[in-house]
Structures are given as structure tokens and as C-alpha cells.
Design a protein around this nucleic acid. Sequence first.
DNA 1: GTCTATATTCCGATAGAC
DNA 2: GTCTATCGGAATATAGAC
Lengths: 191, 191
Amino acid sequence: MSTRESIIHLADQLIRDQGYNAFSFYDIAKTLGIKNASIHYYFPGKTQLGIAVIKEQSRRFNVLKQAVADKRPAEQLRAFAHTYAATRQEERICIVGSLASDLHTLDTETGQSLALFAEEVIEWLETVLEQGKKLGDFTFAVPTRTKALLIITNLLGGLQLTRLTQPQDFYTIAETIIQELSPVQIKENNT
Amino acid sequence: MSTRESIIHLADQLIRDQGYNAFSFYDIAKTLGIKNASIHYYFPGKTQLGIAVIKEQSRRFNVLKQAVADKRPAEQLRAFAHTYAATRQEERICIVGSLASDLHTLDTETGQSLALFAEEVIEWLETVLEQGKKLGDFTFAVPTRTKALLIITNLLGGLQLTRLTQPQDFYTIAETIIQELSPVQIKENNT
DNA sequence: GTCTATATTCCGATAGAC
DNA sequence: GTCTATCGGAATATAGAC
């Protein structure tokens, strides 16, 4: 991994761990064993680094998208949810949730880049849900976009809320999302 | 409103607008027409101010709780969701989402105070859902705590995600949460 | 209670040598 | 590409006068 890639990777981890306004160039520099000023060689300012992080997340999302494109909708959704579960295990949150929380402190470009990425994710999830419904794999009684919003907010919010409760709460949320889409629901006693 | 109360109120607004690590004592001081140092008279440090904000949110939550205690579960839930809708209109997010995003930069006490508040909200929502089910006002097929987690993450995450899309998306989310609990669902065509 | 003044630390950023 | 050195600014916090 190049220095540039390492910087982006670390910035991403720091943003999703501590928040955009809490991490510093020095945090990255000390980990990489370089100096503060070297980061400015790759990124003129914090804004450009932030945007690079968003673009990298978008790139990785598209890699996932392609990797599961031929699979069943249920499996696509499970792969998607799994990336959040992995994030939960790291005690981090997702990039959209982290930067949306700090939105009013970000440059316009950063906010636009983030909004673009969020819409990418929503629209992909919409197509997965739509396909699942057509195939009879999914059942849901609200508009597709609404269902997509509900699922994403469950995952995004779940990463944050369950930092305050227990990790298990997140896995319960993720499993429930998938179970509730199943057309064959075994209705059990629930206490 | 006393100076102390004004400070807490402004800190709350700033935390939910810009984030804990982005607001400064000066932001509050200039609005109140006082000096930086005066805030330290009321709160020794930022940590104590942050905790006071959480406690005030908890107090106001309990006021709401008492105000709707005699009403039907559906109306209690609607009043709860309405506070989030009002927050959405201000372009802010909820205190739990904001501080949970910054959790790893907060003092232990602040984190504990926040976790306590989050659990208060979850448990109250559980009792409302449970009552609604007993009365036949609500239908849901997952454990009560799970349903509470799903609803709260929809609202918490909705405030953040819809900063990037449109305000209407949030209202759709909030309305859908309530509609989906209704035992008499008119299943319409959904595209 | 509120002020002035200041201490201290940290951060993003830049100039210029190597 | 990476460094040293430094600038300018901002933030939390404290001491002490009024």
C-alpha cells in the first residue's frame, strides 16, 4: 500500500472512530512514522483528504456491488449488512453517519461528495429490494425507497446506538432486517 | 432563563448542530454577550457542560413522558416521533446520535451519562410498545426490545441520513414507523 | 458574577532545505 | 518525497481584579 493509500486508510479509520473534527494530521503522521508536513504533499488540506476518504468508500462499495451482482437479492443484502457488522466489531461507525453528524462543519464540496455517496447506496439498495420482490424473495408493504431508507437508518443508527448498549443489539438489528423481508415468516411468541 | 440555563440550551443546540468537538465556549459566549471565562464559573470544563446538556435532555424527556402518560400508546409514540420531526426542521440531529458519534473522544463520565439516557429512552419505548400490543393498538412480530431498537435507529439515523437527501425523507420514515405498527394495514400497491 | 489578561496546548498550513 | 522550522489561529483553562 502506497503512502497515499495508507493516509486515506488511516484517515478513514480515524473519522469513523473519533469523528472528522477530532482527528489530526499528527494522528496519521505518527502512525505512519512520517511528519505532519508530508501529508500536505499528498493532500493540500483536510478537506481534500476528507473527500478522498469518501471517494475510497465509494470505490469499495462499488467493488462489493460488482462482487455480489450475480447473487440472489437476499445474499446481496446479507453481504451489505455484513460490512456494517464488521464495522460494529471495530467499534466504529459508518462514514455516512460520521460525516453527516459533522455536516455543518464541512466544506460544501465534502458535503456534496457525501450526499452523492449516500444516494448511490440508497439507489443500489432500492434495486436489490425491487429485484427481491420480483423474485418473491422479499416481501414488504411500503414503497421501495422508503424500505431502503428504513434499512439504512437501522444500520447507520444501529452502529451508533449500540455503542451505548451492547454489540449484540446491533447483530439483532441486522438479523431482524433480513428476517423481516422474508416472505415465509414463522411467527413465534415474542416477549 | 438564567445564564446557566442559557448556556446549557446553547450548548445543546451547538452539539446537535455542529458536534461536540466543533463547538467552543466562545460560540456560546458571543451569543450570550458574555466572555469566555464566565462560562467556566458555571461549568469547570467542557465535560461538565456536556453532562449538563445530557441531564437536561433527560429531564425534558421525562417531562414529555409524564405529559403523555395517560394517553394511548399510539399517541405517546406520535408525540415522541414529533420531537424528532421538530429536530429535523431545525436541521439538527438528536443528542444520542451526535454524542455517540463522538463517543471515543468523550470522558468516561460523559459516555456513562449518555448510555444511561439512551437506556431510559429504549426502556420507555419498550413499555409503550408493550402496552400498545396488549391494547391491540400495535402489531409487531419481533421482540419488544428489538422493535424499540429498530424504531429509535430509524429516527436517530433518519435525522442524519436525510441531511443528505431531503427533509421529506425523514417525515416519510417517521410516518411509516407509526403506520407499520397499526394492526389494520391497508395493503396498497407499492412501487 | 463577570471581567481582563494570560498560560498552555494543539492544529492546519507553508516555506524552503535536502 | 520527506524533512525542519515556523507561522497564525483557535481552543480550553486559570489567576486575579472589580
